[in-house]
Amino acid sequence: MSCGSKSGASCGSGGACGCATGRGDVIDDARRAFLRGATATAVTTLAAGVTLYSFGAEPAAARGPDEKVTSKVRWGLLIDASKCGDGCSACVTACQTENGWRDTGHPETDAQWIRKLTVNNPKNGATFSLPMMCQHCADPPCVDVCPTGASFKRADGIVLVDKHTCIGCRYCMMACPYKARSFIHEPLEDQKPHAPRGKGTVESCTMCVHRVDEGRIPACVEACNDTAGGAMLFGDLNDPLSEIAKRVAAFRTTRIRADLGCNPGVYYRNI
């Protein structure tokens, strides 16, 4: 889990931090927090969040399995389009493998939790590509319109569908400005045990909530860091010491259709 490990690769590819210095800062920050009188738990949490999420490594658990999620955390993503390869779809493949959805040859109805978009400016011919998925809005229209309360936002900002209550009305699909949700049309079997999905319900990117709850990073981010351009960073936007919050503060970032006021948790750079 330290910078020296394999998954520390994201640190190098991120290019913005040297492992040794980064680690030093982390320890200092943790000590400072301790000296400021924070409780021992807070220090652990803080240290874990800072140390591990910052570098895209395997983070240790910041929360026990029996503890509720809290709104102290807001999980988010920062995606640097300049590092996102044109033909690359490592994130999409990783998501499919992790969550068990796939193309079945019916592009109009197949589930799509994450997709690659090629954006082009017809005026000057400039093109670039980026991954697009549920933006985990802080004010999500999908939740506003859901008649059953199945569509909901977890305290830590992850937007999910409780498939136990979803009636498949698909209002949320209509309301989502990002076309992030899919409806399952056919019966399924052999789903991934950690990612239940079934006919008649709506689904979308879960930010790999099952991994996040274990203190790990989403599969797309891991794949992009390990095997592709290292364009994605996952972390706690509420923690000013996290790498993602630092970068969002330091660089000019864009949230897609920010004008709609959904307050997405996914930030993009260089678009």
């Binding site: 929360r63 399995p65 029996d66 503890e67 509720k68 999620v69 909901f152 977890r154 305290a155 830590d156 999910l160 409780d162 136990h164 909530v209 099952h210 709850d213 274990e214």
Partner: peptide
């Protein structure tokens, strides 16, 4: 589990 992320075994 769904709402509070509690994943006791």
């Amino acid at each position: 589990t769904v709402y509070d992320g509690i994943r006791t075994k």
